[in-house]
Design a binder for these strands. Structure first.
Length: 547
RNA sequence: GCGCCAGUAGCUCAGUUGGAUAGAGCGGGAGCCUUCUAAGCUCCAGGUCGGGGGUUCGAUUCCUCCCUGGCGCGCCA
C-alpha cells in the first residue's frame, strides 16, 4: 500500500467513526502551493451536510481521530475554508522511491486493462501519396495511445487499414498513366481528381524501366499494382523512420473479395434498416441520431465509403476486439455516426459507443514566421518525411504530442529545430542526460544503487520533496492519460518533471558529498532518470545518456 | 442554417475531471560558469480565463444563451 492509500484509509476510518456515510471516498490531492503541505483533502467540507457541523469543527475531529504516525504524517493543519493539509515525514515520503528502483522500466505500469483485447487503428492512409503532417499526428497519437494502453494492462493490437479499393486508386492509376505518356512525349493531362505530386513521376519512370513493353501504361492493371506497391513501400519507410510499427495491415479490398461487404449489406436489409429510393439503397441512420439517412449503394451499383467501414468493424468485433479505438482527423467526424449506426442496426450485440474515436484537429506548420504548405515531393502538402528531415524524429514526435488532440496544433519548425535553449524535447532529454552524467563521471555503476541502506530522511529539502512527490505521481498520471487516451498529459508531465530535475541538479550536488547524503541523492537521481526514461519511451522518444 | 472542436499572458498552449493567490515554454528585462553537461539555474514584467446569466460553501472547469475561429454537413473518401 502506498503512502497516499494509507492516509486515505486513516481518513476513512476517522470519518466513519464520526458518523460519515458508508462508502465515503475522500479526495486527496497535491496542492499547487508547497506551503499547503504534501497532501490536502476537502473531506471536511464534503461532510458538512451529512454531519450537520461546520467544516472547521469536522476537520478538527477528523484529525483527532486519525493515527497520523501510521500514515507517515508529521503535521496536519486546518486551512482556508476547511481544507486539511498534511505534511508527510521526509523519510516516509522518499522511501517510497524504493518502488521506482525495484520496478525499473516497469515502474508506472498498472493492470486496469486486465489483459482485455483492444485494437487501435491509426494512420490508415490511402496508398495514393506520401504521408502528410496529419498522418504524422495520427501516427504519434496512435502509437503513444497504444503504448499507454499496453502499459495499463490492455492487450493491444496496432492496425493499419489500407483503402486500396476505391475511386482514389483509380485516380492514382490514371495519374500514373498520364505521367507515363508525358515521359513518352505526350502533353501532360492529369485527370480530374488526379494526383499532381512529383512522386508520381518517379513511380512512372520506374514503371517504364520495369515494363519496357508498356511505356505508355496501356496495361492499367499492371500500372495500378505497380503504383500501389511503390506507395505502400514509401509509406512503410516513412513509418519506419518515424519508429512506428503495426501488428496488422488490413486491406479494404479483402472485405470485397471475402464477401464481407455483401454479407453486411444483406444483414442490414434483413434487419429492416434499409430502404430503396431513386435507384439507390439507403440506411436509416436517422434511427440512430443522424440528421438524415445515408446512401449505401449508389445508382451505379457501387457502395459508399462507410459501408465497407461498417463491414470492417463487424470484422474487428468478430476477431474478439470488444474494444476498438480509431485515431482520425476531425474532418472525418461525420463518419462516426454512420459507422456506429450501421453496427447498431445489425443488432448483433455491439455496444453503442463502438468503435471509440480519437479525433484530432488540423496541424499548421510554421517556418520562418510563415505557414509552410508545400512539399517538393508531394506538391500540395507537407509530408511527415519533410518534418523528420527538418527537425528529427524525437522533436517531431514530441511536438505532435504536446497538445491535446482536440486543439488545433501549430508546429513551429524553427523552435523544434533549435538545439540550443528553447526546445522542450531537448530540455527533457537533457535532464535525463545530466543525471546519467553523475553516474558516468562518478564511475558509479547504475545497478549498484538499489535503495538498500539508504537513509531516505536526508532528502528533506523543498526541491527534493517536490521532485519525490512528482516521481511518485507517475503511475497515477499514466493510468489517467491512458484512460482518457490523452498522451499530451505525459508530455506535460515530463516537462514538469524535467524542470524539477534541473532545479534539483543545480542546487544539490551529489558526488563528493558525505556518504549518507550522496547515497540518498544517487537513489533519487536514479529514480528520476528512470521516470524520465519511462515517460519518454511511452511517447516513442529516445532517452540519451549524453548529449 | 445544423453538428463537432476550440477561445486562458505579446505568441504557442497546460490547467490533476468543482478547490486555496490561474501555470509552463517562447518572446521582453536583470543576474549566475576554477565544483556531477550553461542544451542549465535564479529573479522581474505580463491576465476582465471570449461575453452575459445560472447551479453552490467555492466555477477557467458543470448548465444555458450569445460572439469569434477551425472542421464537417455529397449517390466524394
Amino acid at each position: 500500500m502506498s503512502g497516499v492509500d494509507q492516509l486515505r484509509a486513516e481518513l476513512v476510518r476517522s470519518a466513519r467513526a464520526l458518523g460519515a456515510p458508508e462508502g465515503v471516498a475522500p479526495v486527496l490531492e497535491r496542492p499547487r502551493d508547497p506551503s499547503h503541505g504534501d497532501w490536502a483533502t476537502n473531506l471536511a467540507m464534503m461532510l458538512t451536510k451529512a454531519l450537520g457541523k461546520k467544516p472547521a469543527e469536522i476537520a478538527r475531529e477528523l484529525i483527532a481521530g486519525m493515527d497520523l504516525a501510521a500514515a507517515g504524517v508529521s503535521e496536519a493543519e486546518i486551512a482556508g475554508p476547511g481544507f486539511i493539509n498534511f505534511r508527510i515525514d521526509a523519510g516516509a515520503l522518499a522511501s517510497q522511491l524504493q518502488r521506482v528502483l525495484d520496478q525499473g522500466d516497469a515502474y508506472g505500469d498498472t493492470q486496469g486493462g486486465a489483459g482485455k483485447p483492444v485494437v487501435v487503428e491509426f494512420v490508415s492512409a490511402n496508398p495514393t501519396g506520401p504521408l502528410h503532417v496529419g498522418h504524422g499526428r495520427q501516427a504519434a497519437l496512435g502509437d503513444a495511445i497504444s503504448t499507454m494502453l499496453s502499459r495499463t494492462g490492455w492487450n493491444v493490437s496496432r492496425e493499419f487499414y489500407y483503402n486500396d479499393a476505391g475511386v482514389q486508386i483509380a485516380n492514382l492509376t490514371l495519374s500514373t498513366q498520364a505521367r507515363l505518356r508525358e515521359l513518352a512525349g505526350d502533353a501532360l493531362e492529369i485527370p480530374e481528381g488526379g494526383y499532381h505530386g512529383e512522386y508520381i513521376v518517379d513511380i512512372a519512370r520506374k514503371y517504364a524501366t520495369e515494363h519496357p513493353a508498356d511505356t505508355r501504361g496501356d496495361d492499367l492493371d499492371a500500372v495500378r499494382v505497380h503504383a500501389v506497391k511503390a506507395l505502400r513501400q514509401e509509406q512503410d519507410l516513412d513509418l519506419k523512420t518515424f519508429g512506428v510499427q503495426f501488428d496488422v495491415y488490413f486491406l479494404e479490398s479483402s472485405l470485397y473479395s471475402d464477401g464481407q461487404v455483401e454479407r453486411t449489406v444483406g444483414a442490414l436489409e434483413k434487419a429492416g434498416a434499409t430502404f430503396e429510393e431513386g435507384d439507390a439503397l439507403w440506411l436509416r441512420t436517422t434511427d440512430y441520431g443522424d440528421d438524415k439517412d445515408r446512401v449505401m449503394r449508389k445508382r451505379d451499383g457501387t457502395y459508399t465509403y462507410f459501408v465497407p467501414d461498417v463491414a470492417y468493424h463487424v470484422n474487428k468485433w468478430g476477431r474478439g476486439f470488444t474494444r476498438a479505438i480509431n485515431v482520425q482527423g476531425a474532418d472525418h467526424h461525420s463518419t462516426v455516426t454512420r459507422v456506429r449506426a450501421g453496427l447498431q442496426a445489425l443488432g448483433v450485440g455491439i455496444p453503442q459507443g463502438y468503435p471509440e474515436y480519437v479525433l484530432h484537429q488540423m496541424v499548421t506548420v510554421m517556418k520562418g514566421g510563415e505557414e509552410m504548405k508545400i512539399s517538393k515531393r508531394a506538391g500540395s502538402y507537407v509530408t511527415v518525411r519533410d518534418l523528420i528531415d527538418e527537425v528529427g524524429r524525437d522533436a517531431v514526435r514530441y511536438f505532435l504530442l504536446m497538445r491535446k488532440g482536440d486543439s488545433q496544433l501549430v508546429f513551429d519548425v524553427d523552435l523544434a529545430r533549435s538545439q540550443s535553449e528553447d526546445n522542450p524535447v531537448y530540455y527533457i532529454q537533457m535532464a535525463h542526460a545530466r543525471v546519467s552524467g553523475i553516474f558516468r563521471v562518478g564511475e558509479i555503476a547504475m545497478e549498484s544503487v538499489t535503495g538498500a541502506r539508504v537513509n531516505w530522511a536526508v532528502l528533506d529539502s523543498l526541491e527534493e520533496r517536490e521532485l519525490v512527490k512528482t516521481l511518485l505521481d507517475w503511475p497515477r498520471l499514466l493510468a489517467g492519460a491512458a484512460e482518457s487516451t490523452e498522451p499530451h498529459r505525459v508530455a506535460n508531465y515530463l516537462l514538469e518533471t524535467a524542470r524539477l530535475v534541473h532545479t534539483w541538479y543545480h542546487k544539490h550536488h551529489v558526488l563528493g558529498e558525505p556518504e549518507p547524503v550522496m547515497q540518498a541523492r544517487l537513489a533519487l537521481g536514479k529514480a528520476a532518470r528512470q521516470v524520465l526514461k519511462n515517460g519518454l519511451t511511452v511517447l516513442g522518444i529516445t532517452a540519451p545518456d549524453r548529449m
